[in-house]
Amino acid sequence: MRVIGHVAVNVFKESVRDRVLYNLVAFAALLIGASYLIGQLTAGQDVKIIKDLGLAAIATFGLLIAVFIGIGLVWNEVERRSIYSLLSKPIRRYEFILGKYAGLALTLLVNVAIMTAAFYAVLAYLATQFPGSGAVDPGLLRAVALIVLELLLVTAIALFFSTFSSPFLSAALTFGLWVIGHFNADLRNFEAVVQSPAAARLARGLYYVLPNFAAFDIKTQAVQALPVPGSYLVATALYGVVYIALLLAGAVMVFARRDFK
């Protein structure tokens, strides 16, 4: 546990120094710029659009960080040979993997926390411009919570691929899974589209196996202040946690068997 913590802090330190947090500047600029522009462009819906944009931006910036750092987490250490000296220390291979994961998770959490704070600051400003619009709605945090979970799942996928494949391929596979994960409902209903029962069964199988990213997306519901049952949140969180555990277990197993030629 202690060793995992040290590895994680090291990942966090390195990503911060690698200017990963610069995305926050882009995020703030985007949100503030958009708040200014949208008032000129549209009638009445400024607050809704800023909420949509803010949540989508948090999810997107987080996704880019999760993928582009995640794919290099293990691969770079092997490629740059820093792993050689590290693994000769009293650190087990699974501790290395879990530490790397925890480090990126920490980076993402800090990032999302700052983005969310900036988001609420912009909303608080909008609330002064549009009184009674309910701009500062704590219900949006439900969407942020599921975004965090989604990012942790994406990180686990990227890390898993990173244990055996090149960054380019890992990025393609991770993004691919993320996109497919939003078409999940279509896989479920595939038999309505195709004639072949075999293809329909395959699609149904994929529906159960592939990560269902669509489930983590409650941005629209949060912005519209619609009720989201607590049971849904719990079930989705549980799904995410189990899926992450599966991927990390897979990554640990692949990594434990690897030869570092």
């Binding site: 819906q45 809704k48 659009i49 949509d52 944009l53 989508a56 999810a59 996109v179 939003h182 990213f213 669509a214 997306d217 941005k219 629209t220 912005v223």
Partner: peptide, 9 residues
């Protein structure tokens, strides 16, 4: 994808 609301906007 996950940007339906934003695209609607």
């Amino acid at each position: 994808l996950s940007y339906r609301s934003l695209l609607a906007d």
